[in-house]
Design a protein around this nucleic acid. Sequence first.
DNA 1: CTGATTCAGGAACGATTGTTCCGTATTTTT
DNA 2: AAAAATACGGAACAATCGTTCCTGAATCAG
Lengths: 193, 193
Amino acid sequence: MARTKEFNEDQALDKAIEIFWHKGYNGTSAQDLVNHLGLSRSSLYDTFGDKQKLFVKSLKRYQKQNHDVLIELLENAPNIKTAFTEIFKQAVIESLQDRITKGCFMVNSSVELAMHDPEIAKIVHDNQKTVEDIFSKAIKKGQDLGQISDKQEARSLARFIFNNYSGIRVLARTGERDKQVYDDILKSIFALF
Amino acid sequence: MARTKEFNEDQALDKAIEIFWHKGYNGTSAQDLVNHLGLSRSSLYDTFGDKQKLFVKSLKRYQKQNHDVLIELLENAPNIKTAFTEIFKQAVIESLQDRITKGCFMVNSSVELAMHDPEIAKIVHDNQKTVEDIFSKAIKKGQDLGQISDKQEARSLARFIFNNYSGIRVLARTGERDKQVYDDILKSIFALF
DNA sequence: CTGATTCAGGAACGATTGTTCCGTATTTTT
DNA sequence: AAAAATACGGAACAATCGTTCCTGAATCAG
């Protein structure tokens, strides 16, 4: 019927994730989006509706990407405890090498928007529930295999792990570059495991 | 020389803390400040300079208030471990009863601004260092008194505690109202202690 | 090729942003 | 009492905000 889109919608979304992740929702202007996504205002609004809708779509995409990675890592791991340490080590590496410290897009959005935007609040809560379930399932398996201490309930441990993951991402967002600080935290976390 | 101020500057700052804490920096408009502080635009700008200066002053005041509470609680405590559990229990109580979930003003500001405003970044870093020192000193004392396990170094534990404190405040900010979630996390934290 | 359709670019919108300025009221010092 | 100084309230500022709309180019079906 008509001409085809000159841009890939998913690629544009990934660009949107980048800029929202870096600058936050309120800190990102429509002009920032135009510049960073490399498409015109009209295309942007025609395709995604408005800024809030674009943000929601970006956050959901980010969420899915992260869940897939977590599931992949934990389900195929021969040793669950090792897999968890790898997940954290990876987060530390990212935190240290990130020239522009972005932290975690989900954590950032929780803090900035969850209490002011019900739709974001729902995403954040879904995320907590889902990650908690992924962790919990893996920990249970690890406990059955004798790889993880079963002194603590699996769900309790899962929530604890999630909490420390949030904390580390906040630390990264503050620009902490001292590896020793992260390692100290990890040492304590896995002493319990 | 001239007429006296009709408002108390510290009281105004406390009001500023409230609104910035609730809405964040970018989310709070000049009009919000006028409404909430209850003083005119001119008085506001004459007294505090501009929005950023007011924010910095608010955050510094909040920081000092919190440090004072921590020091007070930890230095006079007969049992250090008990004191830490009380600090966390208090944070949980605040998180649960806060009708408008504000989280922690320092954590919120870290996430929103630390990487975009060097002055805020400095405050956030000072805060980390100071709280870490307060915690570390208390833990060392607790270890000497045999109240806290000395399997882990004091500073390492301090960083771990700080990390979990951040995490819990993020959780509060998301609006989590299930006490069990917080209790699960606390149970794991103090299993290590 | 023609006509229908949808694209991209950018001008333009009203609303809101943070900030400044001015006139008036009020208080203290001389 | 007069004068100097400052707080106050609100109008007004330019800039930027998110969003809409208009124009012309591009691409498809017939």
